[in-house]
Design a binder for these strands. Structure first.
Length: 346
DNA sequence: AACGCGGGGAA
DNA sequence: TTCCCAGCGTT
């Protein structure tokens, strides 16, 4: 039996019951694929249901505000996915009459839809014989065929894509693509796969050469940047606070936060007061009270550690631009801010 | 070609 | 702790 037929047979026996496998609706498939980029199924699942409830069709999504889209995305990370999702929904409605493109190239032209996602939508919805190559597929192919080219090198990416194309089942592309990814997720797992029970163990090169644990090869560990955040949480006599929207290029673009003072080192109250004097846009304030007195909260992203202090600023009088504390739940905020709001009691 | 971009679960 | 997840866009 060929590689692809073994994958298909395994998939027939072991596939999970996932909602996006019950449909060929490009909107639902697209939504699920964007959400699952670099995201586990278990993490994305509740978001998928909430999005479909809030936006049953691509027109509903296109008609929503970006703020509402980001709010629903809150906590899922990689927020450019949400911004691109929204932009693409508008594009599909405005330029394509509400219909998704049906070709690989057409799909790939959409914002947020790259090589993998275009192949996934094309094959799942329209039976286009394009191979999907995601993290699972890299692992399965690298091990089964004993390929030690780095999966994140230009040469490796090209090689694995061609290999994937050679071994795919063009007649059952939908189930085959789903199957090889499912196989990688469940059977050919990253750590300690149970090769004894694997239906492909007789012909797996990595198993034969005892290289399972070392494949696939991946280069470049991301170095972590240490940053120091000081959030100033204003509270006036009306129970209003200040929120600002993050602009520019970095993390959490278009999400909201309390007024932020970033510094090279950890700040105490005096040095923070000095920093604020040099910064315009922040109102005059009296004394600052540190909220997290046990030490900075370290919010860990995959590429940054954010050492964070929340400073309470009780402000006499009224904040003109303020928003009532009871209203801030509607703002899309990073998990770091959401966690603070959750624990802080006025 | 290299880098930036979140958050969480598993071992 | 470390790894990595149905990757993509920018530089």
């Amino acid at each position: 039996m060929s590689f692809s037929h073994k994958i298909l047979a395994w998939y027939g026996e072991h596939q999970r019951d996932l909602p996006w496998r019950k449909t060929r609706d490009p909107y639902k498939i697209w939504l699920s694929e964007i959400m699952l980029q670099q995201t586990r199924v278990a993490q994305g699942m509740p978001y998928y249901h909430r999005f479909l409830e809030a936006f049953p069709t691509v027109r509903d999504l296109a008609g929503a505000s970006e703020e509402k889209v980001l709010k629903l995305w809150q906590g899922l990370g990689y927020y450019s996915r949400a911004r691109n999702l929204h932009a693409t929904a508008k594009m599909v409605v405005g330029e394509h009459g509400g219909e998704f493109p049906r070709t690989y190239e057409g799909l790939k032209s959409l914002k947020g839809v790259g090589d993998y996602t275009a192949s996934a939508i094309a094959s799942f919805c329209f039976d286009v014989p394009e191979p999907v190559v995601d993290g699972n597929v890299y692992r399965v192919l690298a091990r089964y065929f004993g390929v030690d080219l780095p999966i994140n090198s230009t040469e490796g990416i090209k090689y694995f894509k061609e290999l994937a194309r050679e071994v795919m089942d063009t007649q059952n592309i939908r189930d085959y693509n789903q199957g090889i990814m499912e196989f990688g997720a469940i059977q050919c797992a990253p750590k300690k796969p149970y090769c004894l029970l694997c239906p492909l163990n007789e012909s797996c090169v990595a198993l034969k050469e005892d290289k399972v644990a070392r494949l696939p090869v991946k280069l470049n560990k991301t170095k972590i940047k240490e940053r120091h955040f000081n959030y100033v949480v204003f509270l006036d006599d009306n129970g209003h606070t200040l929120m600002e929207q993050r602009r520019g290029k970095g993390i959490w673009q278009n999400l909201y936060q309390f007024p932020l003072v970033e510094s090279e080192q950890e700040l105490d109250e005096a040095s923070l007061q000095q920093e604020i004097k040099d910064k315009n846009g922040i109102p005059e304030l009296g004394s600052l009270t540190l909220y997290n007195t046990d030490g900075p909260i370290v919010h860990k992203l995959s590429h940054q550690h954010l050492h964070t202090k929340f400073w309470m600023a009780k402000t006499p009088g009224i904040l003109e631009e303020g928003v009532h504390w009871n209203k801030i739940a509607a703002f899309p905020v990073p998990v770091l801010i959401a966690d603070f709001i959750k624990t802080f009691k006025i």
